[in-house]
Computed example of a mutant assay.
Amino acid sequence: MSLRLVIFDVDGTLVDSQADILASMQAAFGATGLAVPAREEILAIVGLSLPQAMARLAPKADKTARAEMVEAYKAAYLALRAEKGTPDSSPLYPHVRKVLDQLHAEPDTLLGIATGKSRRGLDKLVDGHDMRPLFVTQQCADDHPSKPHPSMIEAALSETGVEPHRAVMIGDTSYDMDMARSAGILAIGVTWGYHDAERLRDAHLVIDDIRLLPGLLTQIWEQTA
Results as ranks from 00 to 15, higher is better:
residue 148 P to F: 02
residue 140 C to W: 00
residue 179 M to D: 09
residue 125 L to K: 13
residue 135 F to R: 14
residue 113 I to H: 05
residue 132 R to L: 14
residue 143 D to A: 09
residue 126 V to Y: 10
residue 146 S to P: 12
residue 127 D to F: 14
residue 146 S to F: 06
residue 131 M to V: 09
residue 173 T to R: 15
residue 112 G to Y: 01
residue 155 A to R: 09
residue 181 R to G: 11
residue 128 G to D: 07
residue 143 D to S: 09
residue 145 P to T: 10
residue 132 R to A: 12
residue 196 D to N: 15
residue 104 H to V: 13
residue 126 V to W: 11
residue 147 K to N: 04
residue 147 K to W: 02
residue 180 A to W: 00
residue 176 D to L: 10
residue 162 V to Q: 03
residue 132 R to D: 09
residue 133 P to R: 11
residue 163 E to G: 07
residue 144 H to E: 04
residue 163 E to N: 05
residue 168 V to L: 02
residue 150 P to R: 11
residue 135 F to M: 12
residue 150 P to I: 13
residue 112 G to S: 14
residue 179 M to G: 04
residue 104 H to Y: 14
residue 171 G to Q: 14
residue 145 P to L: 14
residue 194 Y to T: 02
residue 125 L to F: 10
residue 171 G to D: 10
residue 182 S to G: 15
residue 161 G to T: 04
residue 171 G to W: 00
residue 149 H to E: 06
residue 179 M to F: 02
residue 158 S to V: 13
residue 150 P to Y: 09
residue 137 T to P: 07
residue 112 G to K: 08
residue 159 E to R: 13
residue 194 Y to K: 07
residue 160 T to I: 12
residue 122 L to F: 05
residue 120 R to W: 03
residue 134 L to H: 05
residue 173 T to N: 08
residue 145 P to N: 12
residue 141 A to D: 04
residue 176 D to Y: 03
residue 125 L to W: 15
residue 181 R to S: 05
residue 170 I to A: 00
residue 122 L to K: 00
